[in-house]
Design a protein around this nucleic acid. Structure first.
Length: 274
DNA sequence: CGCCAGGCTTCTA
DNA sequence: TAGAAGCATGGC
């Protein structure tokens, strides 16, 4: 893998196991969309980005060297060796099938608060509507930079009421967003410390928030706190467990079962859409 | 109209 | 303490 830096963009060449379309549209992040020219546009860590992939080359428009080293390299999980990871996962037959059907899925490293808030919103909800609610959350309460909006801080949201959040049309989830925002903004829960904790303590902290149960906590740990062993079980993964792994997860994915989960999730969900 | 969506809280037996 | 009901909203 090589990195080429310009003042207005960074180019990554020699990629493997990387499919931008799948990564940004497999239900782990909700703020990416294609513009008229097919470019992916989104915001993370307060930085706007436009991204495109051609073959083994990824171009990140609007990212200079500093932004790439500080944010995007880690965000796209470029430090992780997916080649050896996928070879290891392929020891299991179902995993092999899922990875062959959708090669190039990666787990993004999102901000803890954005992941927490996003997956609170995701509960008993569908992906298009999750995107809609999060879009309105950012447009109404985020900071505007150019044409994009940052994800609103817990401090900003903590000062609001459920009536203020009515514009989101988030339904019963609004009060959960506020409870999370208040506990984080007050320091009652130290989100920044969670990535450094052991996973059981980290999980227990997140579960103190109203509206955060096992699934939302696990998604926050996996997608927002760097715990690749976190294993969210939603309706799709429940089906996979019942149909393929009634006696437990295969040994070859243990330790990184969260990443394996993302292949299984996307693959199992796609079977239903045909 | 009913059913479901990357679930959780609350009520009930 | 397990299991069902209720929850807001929107798409089909």
């Amino acid at each position: 893998m090589e990195f080429l830096y310009n003042t207005d963009k960074t180019t990554v060449t020699g990629l493997s196991n990387f499919d931008l379309d799948l990564i940004l549209d497999c239900g782990q992040a909700f703020r990416w969309s294609r513009d008229g020219s097919g470019l992916w546009r989104g915001v993370a860590y307060g930085l706007p980005l436009a991204a495109a992939q051609e073959g083994d080359t990824l171009t990140l428009y609007g990212a200079d060297r500093e932004a790439f080293e500080k944010v995007w390299k880690k965000y796209f999980d470029l430090d992780r060796d997916y080649d050896s990871l996928c070879r290891r996962f392929a020891a299991d037959g179902a995993m092999k099938t899922a990875m062959e059907a959708y090669p190039g899925i990666r787990v993004l490293n999102q901000e803890p608060w954005e992941a927490l808030c996003s997956f609170i919103i995701s509960q008993n909800n569908n992906i298009p509507r999750i995107k809609g609610i999060i879009g309105r959350l950012c447009e109404n309460f985020g900071e505007r930079t150019g044409e994009s909006y940052s994800f609103p801080t817990p401090e900003r949201l903590a000062a609001l009421t459920v009536e203020d959040l009515a514009v989101l049309r988030a339904g019963f989830r609004a009060k959960y967003i506020l409870d999370g925002a208040k506990k984080v903004a007050s320091g009652e829960i130290d989100l920044a410390a969670i990535p450094g904790m052991d996973i059981d303590s980290a999980r227990a902290e997140l579960l103190r928030i109203k509206g955060v149960g096992p699934k939302v906590a696990e998604c926050t740990l996996l997608f927002g706190c760097g715990f690749s062993q976190a294993f969210p079980v939603d309706v799709w993964i429940k089906r996979v467990l019942g149909e393929l792994y009634p006696n437990g997860l295969p040994e070859c994915i243990m330790g990184d079962q969260g990443i394996a989960q993302q292949y299984l999730f996307h693959w199992r969900r796609s079977l239903e859409l045909t």
